[in-house]
Structures are given as structure tokens and as C-alpha cells.
Amino acid sequence: MRAAVVALGVTLSACLASSSTDPQNGTAVDHGRALFSDPKASPSASNTFTCATCHRGDGSTTTIQPGAPLAGVTTRRSFWGGQRLDLLESVNDCRMFFMDARAPWTTDDEDARAMYAYIAQLPPTLPAPVAFTVVSPTDLPTGDAKRGAVAYDLACRTCHGTAHGGAGRLATFIPVLPDDVVRGHAMLTPEKLRLVFIGKARMGAFRGGGSMPPFSREVLADEDLAGIVAFFGLD
């Protein structure tokens, strides 16, 4: 009996001590860093994206990401190619258009404040606005399928998984490329089908809904996009 009581005491002491000194605890920056890679930046149960899906924070990446690197973002005066002048509004664009959040963060939300703490301490390597050219979907010259295969792996695979199979895609509701899209647009001519892919890549959720972020011409060159379309066999 006495031994059991002692054991309980030790357990409780250890538990209480961990809440103040355990390395699992952290600063607001730590909070923001964790949130950066956590789908819980949006409370939506269906969200699978994190900020890191599209943006580089203080880590490195070998993929083509649609979002601008965030080092220096708190010193930039505009975002989204000049269509936004407020950083929090831009953050909320991501959360609400791509991450299925139903309400914006405000400056009083602790998660928003922690995210700010994290991105504000990133080295200000890119203080100027990052170019983001919105391209109206127009057809492209025939691309190089080999170049497209490489571009697909760099730009599309993170979310859509392997081409044709979808292995490793972020969620089952994300279409397998190109097969699911081709099936869903069986009534379209090949020319219009090409425009579906091009339009979706360029405008993402802002063309026809969904949750896909758009790839500007700056991050995904026309030649790469044309190559992806050729890689899909739509040339």
C-alpha cells in the first residue's frame, strides 16, 4: 500500500514537472513552427494541407511550391502579386480558400499570433514583394513530355501522388492525375481538356472551386506546364 502511494506521488510529480520544464513545451515561435507544419492551422476536419505544403519556412525543399517563401514576409508591403496589402488577410486567404477554414483568424487568435511569431523570426532574405503573375488560361504550345515528367514530380506529386496511380497523394479526394480529371470531363474536346489542366494549374481554386492553390508563371514556367500536359498525353 505504502509503495503504491509513493509510486503515485512520483508519477504525479513527474507529470507536473513536465508541464514547465519538459522540452516538449516551448515559446510562441515554437508554437508557430509546429503550426506551420500542422493541418490544424485550419480547424476543418477535411483539411490535409499545412502551410509547409505550399510555402518554405525555415526548412528546405526540393519541390516546386506554389506559395512564396516566407523568409522576409513580415517586411513585405504586398502579397499575391499586389492584390493584397495585409499579411493576415493573405494568411486567411490560404486558410479559407485552400484549407477549408470557415472563419478568418484575427490578431487576437493565439494561433495567428504564434504564426506571426514564427514567420517574423525567419531571416528577412526576401523583403520585397514576390512576383505572382496571374495568367488567364490560354492554350500553350506543345510541350516536352520528359520535361513534364520532371516538373510533375516537383510540382504536382506532393499533393496528387504518382501520375496515373495517385500513390502517396495527400487525400483520397485529391484527383489522380490525369485520369480522374479526364474521366470527369469526358464530354470535352481535347483542346478544351488541355485548358482544364492549364486553367486549374494557373488559377487553382479560383477557377471552378476546389482547394488547389494556383501556380504562378514565376514558379511554374509555361514550358514546364506545357510539358506536364504533354506528359499526361494531351498534346
Partner: peptide, 22 residues
């Protein structure tokens, strides 16, 4: 009660106390 759902200890973070964010 000491563990989170996945068995790890829940992380506790300090609130942000810097200048006005955003």
C-alpha cells in the same frame, strides 16, 4: 491525464508577447 491522445505529452506554449502582430 499526463499524456496526449497519441501518447506524447501535450505541448504547452507560451503566449505571444511581442509587438502587435500583423
Amino acid at each position: 491525464s499526463c499524456a496526449s491522445d497519441d501518447g506524447a505529452a501535450p505541448r504547452v506554449f507560451e503566449p505571444y508577447a511581442g509587438p502587435a502582430p500583423y
